[in-house]
């Protein structure tokens, strides 16, 4: 094979600009990128596009939409083992919004705060997809 098949990353975020910026970073990092601007499209693409990893904004439209997207993706056959990164513009792990996922909350692989440094993001994705 002349070229290696590119890994595919799904980005779900209702902020178009954030999608564009992150897409540029990921493409530069050698990934194929699929974009979804809302939760519903995100879940559909997670099923159809079978990405190797998905990055999901926690605070789309309403607080909590991210949660339901994650549950739905985890409920898919293709999504059971898909590495998931949750993004938020709020420091979810800081002392004041401490986000403690409940027992029944589907597992995500990583929680990151926006903005994410390009090199960090690429490194995390590499670690999670190999």
């Amino acid at each position: 094979m002349a070229t290696e098949i590119k890994k595919k990353v799904l980005l779900v975020d209702d902020d178009k600009d954030f999608l564009t910026a992150t897409k540029l970073i990921l493409e530069k990092g050698g990934y194929e990128v699929a974009l979804a601007e809302d939760g519903k499209a995100g879940v559909e693409m997670a099923e159809k596009e079978k990405p190797d990893l998905a990055i999901i904004d926690m605070m789309m439209e309403t607080w909590g939409e991210g949660f339901s997207v994650i549950s739905k993706i985890r409920g898919l056959e293709t999504g059971k083992k898909m590495p998931l990164i949750v993004l938020s513009s709020v420091d979810l792990q800081g002392p004041y919004q401490s986000f403690e996922p409940s027992e029944e909350f589907p597992k995500v692989n990583m929680i990151l705060q926006k903005p994410v440094k390009a090199e960090d993001l690429l490194k995390f994705i590499r670690d999670l997809t190999t």
Binding site: D17, A21, L24, S89, P115, V116
Partner: peptide
């Protein structure tokens, strides 16, 4: 303030990151 002010700031920073990388 949390959402409407932080989100655009984060997005601008992400663009800066993209600019640097690209």
């Amino acid at each position: 303030v949390s959402h409407e002010m932080r989100s655009p700031l984060a997005t601008i920073q992400q663009y800066m990151e993209a600019l640097r990388v690209v």
